[in-house]
Write a protein that binds this DNA or RNA. Structure first.
Lengths: 218, 218
DNA sequence: TCTCTCCATATTATAGATAAATTTGTGATT
DNA sequence: AATCACAAATTTATCTATAATATGGAGAGA
């Protein structure tokens, strides 16, 4: 665990709040009151405010000048927007990563896919999905791009956890395998094409599930 | 002027510092000392810290945990990365903006191009160039995308102002006109293709100019 | 019922205290 | 005599505590 020592309190607060917002623990539109958060973390409001700025930049909260910050609402339009941005940027990343992909990396990605198959709940599946994307894109060696993709991924995950989309597991592993097959065959364009469609899938208009319980199994 | 009243001190500081960094008034690698900046703005260090977080998210400064923040260095690789990201995102924005483009908007964009022709220095030219892109992309109605493009544009401008590239005016107005022609003809793909090449032009390896004086005229 | 004023709550900013890191200076060893 | 190591001091970021400012609502009067 290298989580604790080298980074600032503001970072810790921002990460924790981001997790809560993404997982839906804090609902969209909820007011974030800095005094309460400060008290909860045993800190003062100044690092909390810094955390707010970071979350604002990630698009997870919106800040009205003298009225505080609220968890950002996200409409279906927002989800579609994020999905299209992800598609564009991940394709770019994959094209630049392709020359540096080794068999070992692809094997690692395949492991992540299998972990996704075994996942019992949305959290575990999302974790595996994120891993897959990160593994095949990181070798592009474009740090700014990767950070942008990460932020977009968080926004997507928020949507996923909200329960608007019940069918979270079926088509994805097929896509993952198709991407891997393309990469193994050296057909980067085919892989990129599947990736673009795959990423935008989450932005497709889903059949609205009552969100009560997200079906866990197969 | 609505600049002063409704937004916070941190916003003002962050905007001013961003301008300085982009224009090169503060050199890359320079340390930003919060007490000095606080004193200069007649404020305390807390809003300065908030401004730092915002600049960090924009990629204009890098923050080492207990050692302060420095103006971000940018290598040729970074410039290329930003250019590729801009190309991908601006093409996406243009495709989504196209259905909403009217003749009035395109005329406005043409005016911006002409303003670029008349520009006597890099600042004025960059202003006009930025206007052109903003005018044709804003109708895409994707706020998150537009903000991301804006940040990337700032990073590009930083490179331009640094004097690494002396020839800043020649090919661009031709590109702008080609984009407009494509849009007027309803050929969005052609326009998008020119736009992608146009944006990446700034990322091409330039012939290193001694940066002493950037040639002003045509 | 509408409006104006007053009060309460929460954000924003300031000043001061604490802790960490770099730098400088001194001493010892080669 | 020079260089390396260790320690003290200054500088700088980070955090806490406190004061000021703005906003929203409630209550009273027209």
């Amino acid at each position: 665990m290298t989580t604790a020592k080298d980074d600032t309190i503001a970072m810790r607060i921002s990460r924790t709040l981001a997790d809560r917002i993404i997982s839906g623990t804090i609902a969209a539109g909820a007011k974030l009151r800095q005094d309460h958060i400060a008290e909860e973390f045993g800190a003062s409001h100044v690092p909390v405010r810094e955390a707010f700025r970071r979350l604002e930049a990630q698009g997870l909260v919106v800040s009205e000048p003298r009225r505080g910050v609220r968890v950002a609402e996200f409409s279906l339009e927002d989800v579609r927007e994020v999905a299209e941005m992800r598609a564009a940027l991940e394709v770019l990343a994959l094209r630049n990563a392709a020359p540096h992909l080794t068999k070992a990396i692809l094997d690692q990605a395949e492991d992540a896919t299998k972990a996704g198959d075994r996942a019992g709940d949305v959290q575990a599946w999302e974790e595996a999905n994120r891993s897959f994307h990160r593994i095949i894109l990181t070798p592009c060696r474009m740090p700014r791009l990767l950070k942008a993709i990460d932020d977009l991924h968080a926004a997507s995950a928020r949507f996923l956890f909200s329960g608007w989309r019940a069918e979270w597991d079926a088509p994805t592993d097929r896509d993952h395998r198709a991407i891997l097959a393309g990469l193994r065959a050296g057909d980067v364009e085919a892989a990129a094409s599947v990736l673009a469609r795959h990423v935008q899938w989450v932005g497709q208009k889903p059949r609205l599930a009552p969100a009560g319980k997200v079906s866990a199994g197969g």
